[in-house]
């Protein structure tokens, strides 16, 4: 029966509209009109298929009606509130994210190198490698100067990266990606996955390996331990660089691909974890420096970093699980 075709066509057209008394009545009226037109066309000698074709081709478009009723035909109508990201913006975001990730990674590595340089000078002076000109105080001074010489450009890099990324903070609020761009980002993400996994494995291996010199050195006495801690910091610096750089590239993909609705909940989680990280890591660094300078416990106080890392990781995992339960 050809009227069924017309009926199912109409049902499909109205499927996206909310079911109200008004739309129901409109649908009934439209169906009545289309039905009448169909029978008349058949009486005029048109075939059934021809008649259905004409009726459907003269239907028009449902958006026109929806607009008049003041309703959005899209069931996910709120998606319209999000701004549409252009192809250029998305591409630019990815390249900026990659570059600032690189710079931030270098910055973190510089900080760690600064601390290790300071340790190096301290140890060298303590061992009398600079001869008798350099007192221990001069050694401390030299170490501090070296550290700050590296910290200053590092801070510069952080500020520069932060400012560059600031421009894209609106991405946290939700947006829509054009369909073909979404495909492109998905393709990039898939192509990048092996690299990212490799960088993670490498970074974690470096972290684990970094402890080995410290254990080995404990057999050779105090100054050997100092050199081992310097090595540890440098290895950690490399690992952190890998995490930050590759992590940023990955984040640029996940940020672009996340669903607009998930964005809000995720934002809240990221905010809490970000805030915790901003407190925890500087605090750990403070404890590291203070315990080193005041109590001279350089041989053991490095454990603060792996311990903080593990505790913080546990906190993040725990928080995500609790939050996930709440929202589901």
């Amino acid at each position: 029966m050809q009227m069924d075709t017309i009926m199912s066509y109409l049902n499909n057209m109205f499927a996206a509209l909310p079911r109200t008394e008004q739309t129901f009545k409109l649908k009934q009226d439209l169906l009545a009109g289309m039905e009448e037109k169909y029978y008349e066309l058949k009486q005029e000698g048109k075939s059934e298929n021809e008649a259905v074709g004409i009726v459907i081709s003269e239907f028009g478009n449902i958006e026109e009606l929806a607009a008049e009723l003041g309703i959005a035909p899209d069931p996910a109508g709120e998606a319209e509130l999000f701004r549409l990201l252009s192809e250029e913006e998305a591409t630019e975001y990815m390249s900026v994210k990659k570059r600032t990730g690189f710079l931030t990674g270098i910055g973190v590595a510089l900080c760690l190198t600064g601390v290790s340089l300071m340790l190096l000078f301290n140890t060298l002076v303590e061992e009398g490698r600079f001869g008798s000109f350099a007192s221990e105080d001069a050694g401390d001074m030299l170490g501090l100067v070296a550290m700050f010489l590296l910290l200053v450009p590092a801070v510069g890099l952080f500020i520069y990266s932060g400012m560059k990324q600031e421009k894209y903070s609106y991405l946290q609020g939700g947006f829509e990606l054009p369909y073909h761009m979404k495909r492109e980002v998905e393709r990039r993400q898939a192509a990048f996955a092996p690299t990212y996994t490799l960088s993670l494995i490498l970074g974690v291996c470096l972290c684990i390996l970094s402890v080995i010199p410290v254990f080995a050195a404990s057999a050779f006495g105090d100054s050997a331990t100092s050199y081992a801690v310097i090595a540890l910091l440098e290895i950690i610096a490399m690992a952190v660089f890998l995490f930050v750089y590759y992590g940023n590239i990955r984040e640029s993909h996940t940020v672009l691909l996340k669903k607009p609705k998930a964005a809000k909940a995720q934002k809240e989680e990221e905010r809490v974890i970000g805030a915790a990280a901003a407190v925890v890591w500087p605090l750990a660094t403070c404890i590291f420096l203070v315990s080193g300078f005041v109590f001279g416990s350089w041989h053991i106080n490095w454990v603060i970093f792996p311990v903080t890392g593990i505790l913080f990781g546990m906190f993040c995992a725990f928080y995500n699980i609790v939050k996930g339960k709440e929202s589901s």
Partner: peptide, 14 residues
């Protein structure tokens, strides 16, 4: 001129 169904009913509504 053939007025489309949706145009007609939009007009009625308006």
């Amino acid at each position: 001129y053939i007025m489309k169904e949706t145009t007609l009913y939009s007009a009625f509504t308006r």
